[in-house]
Amino acid sequence: MRILVVGASGTIGKEIVKTLEPDHEIIRASRNGEDVQVDISSLDSIKKMYEQVGKIDAVVNAAGGAKFSKLTDMTPDIYNVGIESKLKGQVNLVLYGLNYMNDNGSFTLTTGIMMDDPIREGAAIAMANGGVKYFVKAAAIEMPRGIRINSVSPTIMEESWEALGDYFQGFKPAPAREAALLYKKSVLGLQTGKNYEMY
């Protein structure tokens, strides 16, 4: 299979590449552009990426930014980071990727534990994650040509614990390599409209 991994240079993205590349052709996309450059908050950047990459069998996205913020300090500028990147960016990867996706291909997006298990200063992120989850659920019933769509909802990663662990009191961190297995399950399995939860 020819698989485009967006966010390939990130914590989870690197493990997705390691998990899939022994048996598949992997195209690595990120802001720094190991194979191709993309900023998923930019529609023009997404379009340019697909033009460069051409036809594919799967898109796996592990990119998307959002900001922690106390609710009392939250502003449209703060929550819009998650809306523009994590939510709209992933939706646009699907909408503009359909014309490049081969029949019976798949999209795998990323949500996250905060939408189901809220933490302090996580409302803006939870909102973006929830939007992605329910886009996937609804879009699955309309996907053309046998194309599937799923999302993966990781917990806090061991690799991110030092930087973010204070937000996740009482949570059990998991290694990114375990998260990568859920992305593999989405790409190589048969289910659609599912949010694979790592918790």
Results as ranks from 00 to 15, higher is better:
residue 78 I to L: 04
residue 125 I to G: 07
residue 193 G to P: 07
residue 156 I to S: 00
residue 27 I to C: 08
residue 165 G to N: 09
residue 138 A to M: 04
residue 166 D to Q: 14
residue 183 Y to A: 09
residue 73 D to G: 10
residue 124 A to P: 05
residue 176 A to F: 00
residue 139 A to G: 08
residue 185 K to H: 04
residue 84 E to Q: 15
residue 9 S to Q: 07
residue 15 E to T: 06
residue 154 P to K: 02
residue 52 Q to A: 15
residue 147 I to T: 02
residue 35 D to T: 10
residue 136 V to K: 02
residue 41 S to L: 08
residue 85 S to A: 06
residue 157 M to T: 14
residue 104 N to Q: 12
residue 97 G to W: 00
residue 40 I to W: 06
residue 47 K to A: 06
residue 116 D to A: 15
residue 137 K to M: 13
residue 173 P to I: 03
residue 128 A to C: 08
residue 114 M to N: 14
residue 168 F to C: 03
residue 84 E to I: 11
residue 156 I to H: 01
residue 93 L to K: 04
residue 147 I to K: 07
residue 72 T to R: 12
residue 144 P to F: 11
residue 149 I to F: 03
residue 104 N to D: 13
residue 60 V to R: 00
residue 56 I to V: 13
residue 102 N to C: 06
residue 116 D to C: 10
residue 94 V to D: 01
residue 72 T to S: 15
residue 120 R to F: 11
residue 39 D to N: 13
residue 192 T to H: 10
residue 188 L to F: 05
residue 93 L to W: 02
residue 180 A to Y: 01
residue 170 G to T: 05
residue 9 S to M: 05
residue 190 L to N: 15
residue 174 A to Y: 12
residue 101 M to K: 11
residue 36 V to E: 09
residue 28 R to E: 11
residue 170 G to C: 03
residue 81 V to G: 03
residue 61 N to P: 05
residue 198 M to L: 14
residue 36 V to M: 03
residue 175 P to H: 13
residue 102 N to M: 02
residue 129 N to R: 04
residue 76 P to G: 07
residue 131 G to S: 12
residue 68 F to H: 07
residue 162 E to Q: 13
residue 26 I to E: 02
residue 78 I to F: 01
residue 182 L to Q: 08
residue 90 Q to Y: 00
residue 114 M to C: 07
residue 51 E to Q: 14
residue 40 I to P: 03
residue 11 T to G: 01
residue 181 L to R: 12
residue 77 D to H: 11
residue 112 G to I: 10
residue 15 E to H: 04
residue 90 Q to N: 00
residue 85 S to F: 00
residue 45 S to T: 06
residue 84 E to F: 08
residue 91 V to C: 07
residue 25 E to A: 10
residue 17 V to P: 00
residue 119 I to M: 02
